[in-house]
């Protein structure tokens, strides 16, 4: 149990670092593109290819970090207007379950996408960067999200169980 906790903390820190680095890379990349063109009069062809790869890692690392922090947007209409705790927790577990299932399914599709990308061996048109550098972010993102959502599902089931035995844990 301790080892899992340690690894998951390390992964979280890694996600934080990666998210910040990608963001800074994008700011500097886009900014320097404008600077080079407008001030120095030269254009870095293919810069956008690097930026797109960085952006996908930012998106998917950011989104997986958000699923750890519970920051994904959800409507939660039901939980606000339902006053019966057992019903509320059951519906919330159902929502968690649907989320985890889909997340796992798309992790699998993400893996197939990655494998296909390796085989097809596509490259960006200017800098000839393998497309797989960007494509892999999708798989990694969905994989991490699956882990965090699974964790949420476990938590939700615990709450439901507590509510069922009359020990609400708000």
């Amino acid at each position: 149990m301790g080892a899992i906790k340690l690894i998951s903390n390390k992964i979280l820190t890694l996600q934080e670092i990666l998210a910040v680095l990608c963001s800074i890379f994008i700011v500097l990349g886009v900014g320097s593109g404008a600077f080079f063109r407008y001030v120095l009069g030269v254009s870095f062809h293919g810069l956008e290819e690097l930026l797109v790869i960085g952006s996908f890692w930012m998106y998917f690392i950011g989104a997986s970090y958000a699923s750890h922090k519970g920051k994904h947007i959800s409507a939660e209409v039901f939980s606000v207007y339902c006053s019966n705790p057992i019903l509320r927790y059951s519906v919330s577990v159902l929502a968690n379950f649907i989320t985890v299932s889909l997340s796992v399914l798309y992790t699998y599709y993400g893996w197939e996408f990655l494998m296909w990308s390796f085989d097809a061996d596509g490259k960006t048109s200017r800098l000839q960067i393998p497309l797989v550098f960007g494509h892999s972010a999708v798989f990694v993102g969905f994989f991490l999200m699956s882990c965090y959502f699974f964790n949420d599902l476990m938590g939700g089931m615990k709450k439901l169980k507590a509510a069922y035995y009359g020990k609400p844990t708000e």
Partner: peptide, 11 residues
């Protein structure tokens, strides 16, 4: 498809 022919898989 009736499209531009892209070169990402073969320059």
């Amino acid at each position: 498809g009736l499209i531009n022919i892209p070169s990402q898989f073969d320059p």
